[in-house]
Amino acid sequence: MKKITNLKEFACTPDRFLGGHRLCPGCAHSMIVREVVNATDDDLVVSTATGCLEVCSAIYPYTSWDVSWIHIGFENAAAAISGAEAMHKALKRKGKLYTDRPVKFVAFGGDGGTYDIGFQALSGATERGHDFLYVCLDNEGYMNTGGQRSSSTPIGAHTTTSPRGRVSYGEKQKKKDITMIMAAHGSPYVATACPSYWKDLAVKAQKALETEGPTFINALSPCTTEWKFKPEETVRIGELAVESCAFPLYEIENGTKLRITYRPKKKIPVKEYLGAQGRFSHLFKKGNEWILDLWQKQVDEYWDYLQRREECGV
């Protein structure tokens, strides 16, 4: 297993996801991807759903991928990787592998490709028990197509299909709890992560890759373009999400054993996280106080719930 000690050493790992891609300056996707693909020395086969990462990393005749990589469609990253993994099993059994080097299988999808259109394929591949890691790059909307809502968009957020308006405060629904849904599949390892906490993410990626069977990481990916914050603030926004417990970091083994992997020393008010992003600016106008209160209440309740589960060892 690769030793992950300090950031300098980790950052010096030869790149498997190369620069020159066309992701926005300040995009968290590339941070997450590099931390995942660099978490192992094993060879990789990667599938990627249609989305920001795909359209920005493999524009013919260029590719940012120095690992075997495939993109088919928006909804089938998990199905694609399950086919590749099945082929590996078949060729191994028949003694026809192309290399003796160990190979790991990883799928990346945005929240559109994971929570929504690709959910069926992800659920199916997980149920079938393929040996792969699925990483959701969760920027809480369809950002590749200009910032439409997804089932990951949190309540009150302005998106182009749940816009704030004269009679609207933006998104009406609560963010779908994808990590718990994946845990309910009985997956041997699921986790949430945020690239602002690089070691937490890298260690989780490593754990997931070392675990046999279908594993899942939901990584928060602050989106400078559609969340409306300055590109240099990506890491800080991620920190605010975690320190306010709006996006708690935890892991669950075998669907039952929950562990909180990062506990803020002092939980900050969720207003500080929301207030740092343009997509929530309307919530600070008169008449919308109740949404801020609701947000805080939901965050507190969920944080309590996680702690209770951890205490009970379930």
Partner: peptide, 10 residues
């Protein structure tokens, strides 16, 4: 995997 390939580019 010693000769990585990209499938399904844009």
């Amino acid at each position: 995997t010693e000769n990585p390939v990209t499938y399904g580019a844009q």
